[in-house]
Amino acid sequence: MSTLALQRPKRAPASRSSSSSGRSERAVGATSHAVLVIWTVLVIAPLLWTVMSSLKTSREIFASPFSLPSSPQFVNYVNAWQSAGIGRFFANSVIVVSSALVITMLLGAMSAYVLARFRFPGRGLIHTLIIAGLTFPVFLAVVPLFFILQQIGVLNTLPGLVLSYAAYAFPFTVFFLTSFFRDVPDEIAEAAALDGASEWRTFFQIMLPMAAPGMASVAILNFVGLWNQFLLPVVLNSDRDNYVLTQGMAAFASQAGYSVDFGALFAGAVLTIIPVLILYLVFQRRLQGSMAQGTSK
């Protein structure tokens, strides 16, 4: 997957010889490259501009969108982290996302394993109901969910948010992992059974480790999705102390209208992006490979 294009070591049989107008050939190539370069600039410019603005004073930001910071204002980051409460929201996000991730990955793997490899009454129905959850608009559910969490007594708390995150990431997790467990050869389960391993042990000691690559991909996709989650916290978590990062950023951007500390706002944006960006750059190869696998089925 790392090579540039369709892997094809030998020359194509009927490569048109260079006689077929090398010049127009080069023109097409140059145009293609130009398109991709323009696209790259369109992607990167807003992000670089954000980083640059995060190092400027508000006065400099108002003066010109292009001017470089006269001296980098790292104090914007301190202001965002402390005064605007981004530090606290960041910690909340880490707690909620990691807890929900552990829960949904474990339960999702368990369900996917059984749904993929065992036959029992109601299996088809349960599987269909879980997969259907992928297409329901979450917006339809949030109103009743609000009152359900209220009745359980976890509205506006981090545990309530963890449960909701885990529940709404569950269908995707099952959907993705079912195909992984289905592909594990039967012989492995049979060998484990011959060795006297119980079904439980077979799952935790043999199947789960074997599904590790798939688990990792799903975990990354889930992490990105949960870290970016906005609707659930906005509806279910209105206590300012419990805000997660996305919520905190929205409040920060809107709270003071024109008196927003713009330098700190940009700094907060950078702080929100960085963890996901790092994770992506570390795992990008695995992520891109598994994405294709997941959607082609």
Binding site: S2, L4, A5, L6, R8, P9, K10, R11, A12, S15, G29, S32, H33, L36, W39, T40, V43, I44, L47, V224, W227, N228, F230, L245, T246, M249, A250, A269, T272, I273, V276, L277, L279, Y280, L281, Q284, Q288
Partner: peptide
């Protein structure tokens, strides 16, 4: 051979950036 443009993996990695930025940001 049928192939893409050079340095396509660079374009791929960069193109993906917006996806990892939270929508609210």
């Amino acid at each position: 051979a049928v192939r893409g443009l050079g340095s396509s993996s660079f374009y791929r990695v960069v193109s993906f950036f917006p996806y990892v930025v939270p929508a609210i940001v």
